[in-house]
Design a protein around this nucleic acid. Structure first.
Lengths: 208, 208
DNA sequence: ATATTTATGTTGCAATTGCAACAATATTAT
DNA sequence: ATAATATTGTTGCAATTGCAACATAAATAT
C-alpha cells in the first residue's frame, strides 16, 4: 500500500511541474466534473473531500465512491453501460490537478525521465482494480453473515492482527455491502453471540 | 468496443516482434499460471480457452473469470486481500504470450514507436474496470428483479435495440448475479407475466 | 443410436431478509 | 449550551429468497 502512496506523491510533484496540468480550486457544493462526455480526463484531488454521485432512473441519489487527499479519479475509471448521470461534488473546499491521458503520454515521449509518472498511473489502475475485486468478492457472497465475514477477512488479511477499525460508520458499511442496516445489526449480534467476532465501537476482532 | 479489440490485435502483433516475450503452448487441463507470487506478469491468450479458478477456505472451487481469444490476464488484474489460491487452467489447448510489466516499459524507453503498445495496455485496464463497474452495479441491487433489470439494461444500452442474446446459460447468469437459480427463474417468469420483458430461448427483449 | 450429462422449468416450505417504526446515543451546527 | 441532525440499537411482521426435490428438454459423449 505504501508503494501506491509513494507513487501518488511522486505523481503530484511531477504534475505540478508540467505545463499542461491545470490547477483548480472548488468550493463546497460545487461540481468538480461530470462523466457525461468521455474525455479521458484525470483529476488528482490534492486537498479536500469529494463524492462521486449517481442519480438513477427514479431520481434516487447514491454515493458511489468517496475521494480524499491524493485520490485520482476520472471518467475512465467509471465507465458503465448505463445512461445514469454521474458527477463529482466537492464536500469541502477542494484543490485539484486536472490533466489528460494524451498529454501524459506525449510528455513521456519527449522525456524518458517521466517513466515513473507512467508507472504511477499504472499503479493507480492496479489499485482501483484491487479495490473493485475486493468489493466484488464481498458482494458475491449470498448471506449477510458471509458478506460480513468476507469483508472482515479482507480487512484483517492486510496485516497480522485479527482486529481492525472500521473505516466508516455502520450505516455506511451496510451501504457498502448493499444490505439492510437493521438486518446487518441483527447479524452482527448473532456473530457476537456465536463467539465468532468481538465488537467494541468501531473495532472488530475476529475470534477464529 | 472495437477500439479495444483493435488495440489487442495491435498488442499481439507487437509482442510477437519483441525478444523478451515468451510464446508457450498448454494442453487442456494444464495450469497456465498461479497468482500466488506477485510477479507483474501479463499473459495474452492468443488462442484457446481458460478459466481463472479460486479455491476458498472450504475447498470449494469457483470459476471467477473465463478467458477466450485475445484476453489479457495476470496477477495485477486479480489482486485481492485474501489468501485464497488463484490459478488459471487451460480448458482447451491454449497458445499464450507471456511478458512482464518492466520489459514493456523498457521497450518504450528504447523506442518511441511503442507508444501504441502502452496505449493498448491502458485500454485493457480501462476495459477491465468497465467490466467490473458493470458487475458491481448489478450486484449492489437489492432484489433479484432489480439485479435482472439492471443487467438487462447494461446489455441493451450498448446498442440501440431493446433486445439481446444472453452470452451464457441461465445457470451461469444466476452465478454471475450471485443468486439462486430457481429463484431467478421464478422472477423471470414474474417479469414476463407483468409484461416487462419477453424471453425467447436466450433472447431477452425489454418491453419498456 | 443410445447413454450420460448438463440445462431448463416448477413448486412447497423454511429461513433469511428488508421494511417500518421506534428509543437511545452520539455527533455536529448555531 | 442547546438545538438539530445523524448514528446505533432493537423488534415484529411480511415479503423475498434459497433450498430441496423433482420432471423435462437439450446437448454432449460413447
Amino acid at each position: 500500500m505504501n508503494d501506491i502512496l509513494n507513487n501518488l506523491y511522486y505523481l503530484e510533484d511531477s504534475l505540478n511541474n508540467m505545463n499542461f496540468v491545470k490547477k483548480k480550486v472548488f468550493k463546497k457544493g460545487e461540481i468538480i466534473t461530470t462523466y457525461i462526455a468521455k474525455r479521458q480526463q484525470y483529476i488528482l484531488l490534492t486537498e479536500g473531500e469529494a463524492d462521486l454521485i449517481r442519480y438513477d432512473i427514479n431520481g434516487n441519489k447514491a454515493i458511489i465512491e468517496k475521494y480524499f487527499d491524493k485520490d485520482l479519479f476520472g471518467d475512465v475509471f467509471n465507465t458503465i453501460y448505463t445512461n445514469n448521470e454521474l458527477f463529482v461534488e466537492a464536500k469541502k473546499k477542494c484543490e485539484v490537478l486536472i490533466f489528460n491521458y494524451e498529454d501524459i503520454l506525449k510528455c513521456y515521449q519527449k522525456d524518458i525521465k517521466y517513466k515513473k509518472v507512467i508507472e504511477a498511473l499504472f499503479s493507480v489502475y492496479t489499485d482501483k482494480i484491487l479495490v473493485m475485486n475486493n468489493r466484488i468478492e464481498v458482494l458475491t457472497k449470498r448471506t449477510i453473515r458471509e458478506k460480513l465475514l468476507s469483508y472482515f477477512q479482507i480487512m484483517t488479511s492486510r496485516k497480522l492482527k485479527k482486529s481492525f477499525y472500521l473505516p466508516f460508520t455502520y450505516t455506511d458499511l451496510a451501504d457498502y455491502l448493499s444490505i439492510d442496516r437493521s438486518a446487518m445489526m441483527r447479524e452482527l449480534k448473532n456473530l457476537i453471540d456465536d463467539g465468532i467476532i468481538k465488537k467494541e465501537a468501531e473495532k472488530i476482532t475476529l475470534l477464529f
